[in-house]
């Protein structure tokens, strides 16, 4: 079995691994790096639970091979909180607005909204709903997630004094 050595930054920490070409980034994160916050749902790019940031852009980690992110910077849900036991603004808004029930889709939701709020600090509800079409939630009916996203955007704008 042909393997390749890869080196990547995950949440600011450098990892070097020898991987099989067919290993997905999702499986690398979960099985090799013990970062199990990234969830694996459909494994064909539909559900969005495995969404991570690759070089600052959201991507399906189930549709990306680990060998493709050699030299890249990956951010997972574990990289969001400022410190152990704390929540960032978006995560706190999810808690406040009941943006999760079972929690399975939450990591993907958070990564998708992290990108949105970075690129568009004042999104409309329809812009929030448009990016969330790429993340399925079977519990909440999305209302709490949309409310949390809009509230997080508001809090971040206040925090940044704009």
């Amino acid at each position: 079995m042909a393997t390749r050595s890869i080196s990547l930054l995950v949440n600011g920490r450098r990892y070097e691994r020898e991987v099989e070409a067919r290993l997905t980034l999702a499986d690398l994160l979960r099985h090799e790096l013990a970062l199990t916050g990234t969830h694996v749902g459909c494994e064909h790019g539909v559900c969005g639970a495995c969404t991570v940031l690759i070089d600052g852009r959201t991507a399906r980690s189930c549709l990306t091979f680990a060998v493709q992110v050699d030299g890249c910077e990956v951010t997972t849900v574990e990289g969001l909180a400022p410190a152990e036991g704390e929540l960032n603004v978006l995560q706190q808004a999810f808690q406040d607005h009941h943006g999760l029930q079972c929690g399975f889709c939450t990591p993907g939701m958070l990564m998708t909204l992290t990108e949105l709020l970075r690129d568009n600090p004042d999104p409309t509800e329809s812009e929030v709903r448009d990016v969330l079409t790429g993340n399925l939630c079977r519990c909440t009916g999305y209302a709490g997630i949309v409310a949390a996203a809009l509230e997080a955007a508001r809090r971040l704008r206040v925090q940044q004094g704009s």
């Binding site: 790019g45 969005g48 969404t51 690759i54 852009r57 959201t58 991507a59 399906r60 549709l63 990306t64 998708t112 990108e115 949105l116 448009d130 990016v131 079409t133 790429g134 993340n135």
Partner: peptide, 9 residues
């Protein structure tokens, strides 16, 4: 075309 997460790649 797909979603933002797939259009990124």
């Amino acid at each position: 075309v797909g979603h933002r997460q797939t259009r990124n790649r």
